[in-house]
């Protein structure tokens, strides 16, 4: 059975990837799963300078999901290059580093510095975190601003030969338009969805349940929304689409492939079960066997209408 997949220059042994912000920098997962059996790992988003993140509470359970307002808490580029990278260097699978900048120049500097590290061959551009504000756009999210998306990606394209993945938001008027903009600007792939903005209120105190007031929704409750975005993006562009949003088991994963995902990312499900991504990989193999499909490639976008 052929599970191999190509994303830009990246060759993945299988299409199951750990999503940004849900697997730390790999090391945190090492007592719970053999990461080397997966397709790839995306790190927590890093920024140029250290960010302390949002005040607690930062996570709260919702019916069928999770609302978070972490606020891109991370140690910054230096902490990544000097501390976090050492575990990643020893992994056998591709490491995708997620980046976010307050300005275009910050994105560029991050990409330039990361390109110097040999173990990093792909960058996921986080254009869609609902928990921070950007200087380059009037929109709440970069991923809502077609021009900003184009500008950032074309600058990054000139900065690095690494594979570039644009991570998009479901919270847009027309995902097709944004996906096309990313493709035209030089992205090698698109990944979606990031979390959907939301909030919850404690009726006793009348205060928001999250310290950051609003947050991003993930988990099973966003899956239908994510599948629609993946299908729309798949129909709009010729580069691979990496799908995610509420994938809890192999059946969820297969739905994403059918809607056009070339690979999938597992996010919130890692919190519920840190070993789940390998279980999903096994489940995908079983499905392909049962359906007598020889290669995962033959499943991508096979939606019958």
């Amino acid at each position: 059975m052929d599970l191999k997949i190509k994303i830009g220059k990246l060759k993945l042994e299988n299409p199951v990837i750990l999503a940004s912000g849900t697997a730390g920098f790999g090391k945190e997962m090492k007592d719970f799963i053999d990461i080397n059996k997966l397709g790839a790992i995306v790190t927590k988003t890093i920024t140029l300078n250290k960010r302390k993140g949002n005040p607690p509470p930062r996570v709260i359970e919702t019916p069928g999901g999770l609302l978070n307002s972490i606020g891109l808490d991370n140690g910054g580029l230096k902490d990544f290059m000097f501390e976090k990278i050492s575990f990643l260097e020893n992994l056998k699978i591709p490491v995708i580093v997620s980046i976010a900048g307050d300005t275009i120049d910050e994105f560029v500097e991050l990409a330039r510095e990361l390109s110097k590290a040999r173990c990093i061959r792909a960058i996921e551009i986080n254009l869609s975190c609902p928990n921070i504000r950007h200087k380059n756009t009037k929109f709440p999210l970069l991923a809502q601003d077609r021009r900003a998306v184009e500008k950032i990606i074309s600058r990054l394209r000139k900065t690095t030969t690494n594979t570039l993945i644009a991570k998009l938001s479901p919270n847009v008027a027309d995902i097709k338009e944004i996906a096309k903009a990313a493709e035209h600007a030089g992205a090698d792939a698109i990944s979606l969805i990031n979390t959907y903005p939301g909030m919850l209120v404690d009726i006793n105190t009348m205060k928001p349940k999250l310290g950051g007031v609003t947050g991003g929704l993930s988990g099973p409750s966003v899956k239908p929304l994510a599948l629609k975005c993946v299908r729309d993006a798949y129909n709009a562009v010729n580069i691979p689409v990496i799908g995610m949003g509420g994938i809890m088991d192999a059946r969820d994963a297969v739905e994403f492939f059918i809607c056009g995902a070339s690979a999938i990312q597992i996010g919130t499900a890692n919190f519920v079960n840190p070993g789940v991504s390998l279980e999903i990989l096994e489940g995908i193999k079983e499905y392909l066997k049962k359906k007598k499909i020889k290669a995962i490639k033959n499943l991508i976008g096979k939606l019958k209408i």
Binding site: A23, M29, G53, P55, P56, R58, V59
Partner: peptide, 26 residues
């Protein structure tokens, strides 16, 4: 503190300390 993962990946269980946020779980 509220926890999602319990293993240091979600950064959800932050508490304020004199040296910045720290994770209750880790």
């Amino acid at each position: 503190e509220y926890m999602a993962c319990g293993i240091g990946t979600c950064l959800g269980c932050a508490v304020k300390t004199r040296t910045g946020f720290k994770l209750v779980c880790k």
